[in-house]
Design a protein around this nucleic acid. Structure first.
Lengths: 193, 193
DNA sequence: GTCTATACCTGGATAGAC
DNA sequence: GTCTATCCAGGTATAGAC
């Protein structure tokens, strides 16, 4: 993998720092240290801090889109795709225990700050919601697809917030297993009909 | 009700502003404007911004404790007490749509900031968790009491985060109704045994 | 107790040399 | 493209008059 150019390095570092410290608290100094450039150099690549935020959100949207696409390519069974979604909680458990869910925490912060970009941040939620809905529809649950999609999103947010607050990896693990069980039950019921 | 003294006024204003804007973003200037005092006057009452945060968290802990005590006094039936908990989502829906859950969002922010007071913030979660557990035990569900307590906390966090992100009061309302239904089912099942 | 004045620092942002 | 130097606003915190 080639070394990314400075602009991309800035975005990647900002992405991580915003996740770890929050947007408001993340300063040019922080990012500059991570990328090893001077503070003044930012303004060649971005006009303002908000522009960096926009770039970070776009990166996250692109990464999310990419991830969802990959899940669709790797699994033809919607059940397995949904299980991929549930298991990101487990896969990212270390980060979630420390910093919570990157989607939820940024969305919440930007709404509190009354920031212009808060709608863009919500778009990542919408990306997941739409994708999840599609999988439930593929399972033949069209009329309840959006309800189930919102259910999975809310569960993930709830589990991430509690695992974060209580710093409890066992809890997170148990809840993931339980969610996978819920998915299984849903299908059992469907197939019985 | 007598006018609170300056110190209490500061704490009350800081409480609201921290909820609405986040701790990091809330400055002395913001609080000073809300209370109508000068910035310099803070340091007669508090040694630092962190000391104000501690006072705010203590206020919240005290208010939470008070609220839980009141629910116990108003209702002898644990079922009704639990229903009070669920319905705070509905009662505070306007604030939740704008600023999310005050308990969860502060806890998440302080953990991201790696702030000393983050354990104190988690204490509010523990207050709820312990109280909820007691109600489930009173319902005769001792072995699953903590599981149910965590379930209700996680549901509340998930619902609050999603309602906040999507600014959707209908969603919040529906989910509250559904949680109350879950509570009802839980008891039906118990009484059947 | 509350004020004004101010110190000091860090934030975002700009100008211009290289 | 990247740097240094610098500006200005805003942050926390202090000193001292009233």
């Amino acid at each position: 993998m080639a070394t990314p150019n400075t602009r991309d390095q800035i975005i990647i570092a900002a992405d991580q720092l915003i996740y770890q410290q929050g947007f408001d608290h993340t300063s040019f100094t922080h990012i500059a240290e991570a990328v090893n450039i001077s503070r003044g150099n930012f303004y060649y690549h971005f006009k303002s801090k908000d522009e960096i935020l926009t770039a970070v959100i776009n990166l996250r949207r692109s990464n999310t889109h990419q991830m969802l696409k990959q899940w669709e390519q790797e699994h033809t069974d919607p059940l397995q795709r949904l299980s991929c979604f549930i298991q990101i909680l487990r896969m990212n458990q270390d980060k979630i225990l420390r910093y919570g869910c990157p989607v939820g925490t940024l969305s919440t912060e930007l709404l509190k700050l009354d920031h212009r970009a808060s709608d863009d941040a919500t778009m990542i939620f919408i990306l997941f919601r739409t994708w999840l809905r599609r999988q439930f529809i593929a399972l033949g649950l069209r009329s309840e697809a959006d309800k189930h999609a919102m259910y999975l999103l809310a569960q993930s947010q709830g589990i991430a917030t509690m695992a974060n607050a209580f710093n409890d990896s066992d809890y997170l693990d148990t809840q993931v297993t339980q969610l996978l069980g819920w998915l299984d039950d849903l299908i059992q019921t469907t197939e019985d009909i």
